[in-house]
Amino acid sequence: MSTQQSIKIENLVKEFGKGDSLLRVIDGASFTVNKGELIALIAPSGAGKTTLLMMIGCVIDPTSGTIWLGEEKVYEDKWITHNSRKIRREKIGFIFQAHYLIPFLNVIENVTLVPQTNGVSEKQAKADAMKLLEYLDIADKAHSKPSALSGGQNQRVAIARALANNPQIILADEPTAALDSARALSVVQMLKKIATEQNVAIIMVTHDERMVQRCDKIMKIENKKIIFEAVEIPS
């Protein structure tokens, strides 16, 4: 695998059910995502976008195929790693449509939870988290609970949490769907900046054409296959 490649997928298949009710959602997907790339994943509802993200994120089991994350082959017809949660904790950041922050932790605790679990000292984790919160312009809310923040602020905290473990990959499942246009654009610009500056591969599921235009490539799921397209910037 090339050192520039962050995600490499080969002949990935995902089936649900058995016998007559067997449903193949992803049929032999093969693609690579390079470091620093922001990829827009678009497909109709039910086409398997979230399923694909969750397989890359080691959350659900593929039926067959191969998954490389960075230098490490994590799946080849079965999980090679015994601790998929450790891979998620160390290599992947997740952002969702809703922020899904832990309500009983404040902002900085939400952001430092994963690094501290990875063995980073509380002091170091907090210092790193404050830098991230400043980077995302939300440092003044470090000690607030998620319930005291607006939707946009919570989504920025969720991005900070996704970045806190210095991930190689960020998987974002419709991160702008719950935001107004201005805030959605701001989040995508932020993701683009993160991808470029921190050399992180980002796959972002979106339905919004305006957001797609900020991405480097478009990945479509059509007829259960993966198709890459160049981004067309409207004149």
């Binding site: 949660r85 998620r88 904790r89 997740f94 899904y100 939870l113 679990t117």
Partner: peptide, 16 residues
């Protein structure tokens, strides 16, 4: 259960 699922999703071990 939702918070627990989120923690599992972001990689927090069962032990914690």
């Amino acid at each position: 259960i939702k918070e627990i699922s989120i923690m599992k999703l972001i990689g927090i071990p069962d032990g914690v």
